[in-house]
């Protein structure tokens, strides 16, 4: 997978996640210094070192996707995370070896 393809995939996953019922926000993924590709260029990250909102790491044909979610308390949090995970998997080509790392980091109790 080329870097451009990885960027497009990250952008597609970000859009899929933000369209998932209950997902309120995406947060910068921790450990941004080691990241290979980042989507979401908007600087919402940590101080002087904004992190990407969806990370796609590639190793040959294998893909690792990482995302940190904020969800609305209006939906059951665990179910929202599960839906988000399914959305990531659905955004990837079926034959692609993939590992997803999805973390719910905040529940918006006002949402």
């Amino acid at each position: 997978m080329s870097e451009k393809q990885a960027e497009e995939l990250a952008a597609a996953i970000e859009a899929a996640l933000l369209g998932t019922p209950g997902v309120a926000a995406l947060f910068p993924v921790a450990g941004s210094l080691t990241l290979l590709v980042e989507a979401g260029a908007q600087a919402i990250g940590v101080r002087d070192e904004p992190g990407p909102r969806v990370v796609v790491r590639t190793d040959g044909d294998a893909v690792e996707v990482e995302a940190a979610l904020g969800v609305s308390a209006g939906h059951a949090a665990a179910e929202t995370v599960r839906r988000a995970h399914a959305a990531i998997r659905a955004a990837l080509p079926a034959a692609t070896p993939v590992r997803a790392i999805v973390t719910l980091v905040h529940v918006d109790v006002a949402g």
């Binding site: 995370v81 995970h85 973390t103």
Partner: peptide, 22 residues
């Protein structure tokens, strides 16, 4: 959070503590 695939899906303890506090 248990899923069928061998992925790492979870919520942070901090997020859960935030829920409890709410």
């Amino acid at each position: 959070v248990v899923v069928a695939e061998p992925d790492d899906v979870a919520m942070t303890e901090g997020a859960v503590r935030g829920l409890v506090r709410a």
